[in-house]
Simulated scan of single mutants.
Amino acid sequence: MVGTASFVKSLGNSVKKVSESKSSSWWYNHHMRAASRAISERIPLVDLVVEVRDARIPISSEYRQLINFPSSSRNIIVLNKMDLASRSKTKEWMAYFKELNYTTFAVNSHNKDSIKEFLNFLQGKIRELKRSTHSSNNIHTTTTVMVVGIPNVGKSAFSNSLHQIGRITAAEKGKLKHATVTPHPGETKNITSFKIASNPNIYILDTPGILPPEILDDELCSKLALTGAIADSLIDQSDLANYFLSILNSSDEYTKWEKFSTMEDDHGGSIMNDHTQDCVVQAVRGALFQELAAFKGNLEDEKDMVQLIEAQCTTLRTVFNVSSDSFGDDNGIFSAKLVNLYRTGRLGHYTLDCLPTTCGS
């Protein structure tokens, strides 16, 4: 799934300028460089490597540093944020990775049952690994699992959830050590150890998110920016909003929102200012349905798509109760609200990467 070419190019140029100029203190700073070296040194020493990817971008969120460590039975790909991706597409991606002999598991780090299922799977994988390496006599030895990935794929939330579910005794509850979890990429600065199981002991190493020093592909830049892998401070939020709308308009998600298009707006402005309120989200869905249902142009035509998005933005500013002010920041406020609703799954579930067998078809 790709967005309108002009928006992809605009986002791509913004990201590439930052990465190429090295002007940002966030982009591949000394923390990322040091962490990158530390991770490379430790990967050969751990028992398993869990690569966390974003289920919305299963290929685009690949951790490039693992290219230096060929895939093997000791590597597991975890497609996190499965609750934000298309369920059918996630199943297709799982089947695709299975054909390539990758060990893959889809999770929602904020769902206890999902994490319990993965922990059971991980323990089985470790037992299998010990049998295959003739380590049955050392079944009680400690196993280390390194969790790696690019920024903001949910590594720390994943590690914390495993730690919470894997607690063995009540005495451990008062001694929990948490990874830093925020919606902002690049918050984890050091490699941190968490115990997730006993008999045998299993420790996971939560690592900082690492991006390559440069990203040259416009589409890849756009997907990483929209899903939050790149700091929002480096990106024009209106470009992100336009890119998301081009993706929404090319999907059939809006067809589910017809019932919201006839709802009357009986809410005050103070409520409408809070874009996370259900009534606001429903109003946004209804407005988008009306704009798309009334659209008579050709979505395959770049100019028609741009005109539709301009009309949608005008309507949504009213829904969000955002109007031009003396500072002229209405675009930034409106765009940030819209992007937030996308990232939290309130405006549908999208898988942005298409399978190699279907790309271009």
Rank of each mutant, 00 (worst) to 15 (best):
L224E: 03
K116S: 13
S24K: 12
L84V: 04
G3V: 03
I204C: 12
K17C: 15
N152W: 04
Q237E: 11
A5S: 10
I196R: 02
L216Y: 09
N29A: 02
I76S: 05
P212G: 07
A95G: 10
K98H: 09
M146V: 03
M82Y: 01
L341Y: 04
L338G: 13
N249F: 05
H134N: 06
Q123A: 08
N331S: 09
S71C: 10
P185E: 06
R343M: 08
R131A: 14
L245E: 07
A241D: 03
S326P: 00
E214G: 10
K9F: 05
D325L: 10
D206H: 02
L216A: 07
H31E: 12
K91T: 08
H163P: 00
S270M: 04
T90A: 13
N242P: 00
A55S: 12
A197K: 10
N80K: 01
R131P: 14
E128T: 04
Y102N: 05
G149Y: 07
L248W: 08
K189H: 04
V147S: 07
Q277Y: 07
T351K: 12
E302I: 11
I191P: 15
F97P: 15
M32I: 00
I202L: 10
Q282V: 00
F118M: 03
M272A: 11
K256I: 08
K112R: 12
R33V: 06
N249A: 12
R167N: 11
E117L: 04
V153F: 13
S193H: 07
A106Q: 02
F295W: 06
F334N: 10
P44E: 09
R87E: 07
S233P: 00
N101K: 14
A157Y: 00
F289D: 03
D301E: 06
C221K: 03
L162C: 02
G297D: 05
D329S: 14
G12E: 05
A85D: 12
D232E: 11
D206L: 01
T180E: 15
D304V: 09
S14W: 07
E310A: 05
N340K: 14
A197P: 09
P356I: 01
D353S: 01
A95D: 14
K112I: 09
I196Y: 07
P70L: 04
S156W: 04
E172S: 14
E128F: 08
I271P: 02
K17W: 09
M32Q: 11
